[in-house]
């Protein structure tokens, strides 16, 4: 990612697009500034949608997604 950013970004990837959209919904309900994006090709392939987030929110995001039983296929720092 661009070296000019003050914090690093991460993406969480999923097995299904349905899971990605559900994750986006519960994260937005928790007022996290995340964004649904096309999955970066070098990461995974499982599903075409991923969620980009600020890496500093990683722990909160893991907690929220686990708490809402949203299955993920992995978290990656960009």
């Amino acid at each position: 990612m661009s070296p000019s950013l003050p914090f690093s970004l991460g993406v969480v990837v999923f097995h299904t697009t349905s899971a990605a959209i559900k994750a986006d919904k519960v994260l937005r309900q928790a007022n996290l500034s995340t964004k649904l994006v096309p999955t970066p090709r070098h990461l995974s392939s499982d599903c075409g949608l991923a969620i980009r987030f600020s890496w500093t929110d990683l722990e909160r995001i893991v907690g929220i997604l686990q708490g809402n039983s949203v299955e993920t296929a992995g978290y990656h720092e960009l």
């Binding site: 299904t16 697009t17 959209i21 919904k25 649904l36 999955t39 075409g48 949608l49």
Partner: peptide
């Protein structure tokens, strides 16, 4: 759920 653009996401949210 097919494409990453806003209209695909909006449709995915409805489903």
């Amino acid at each position: 759920g097919r494409s990453g653009h806003r209209l695909s996401i909006a449709a995915g949210r409805v489903v």
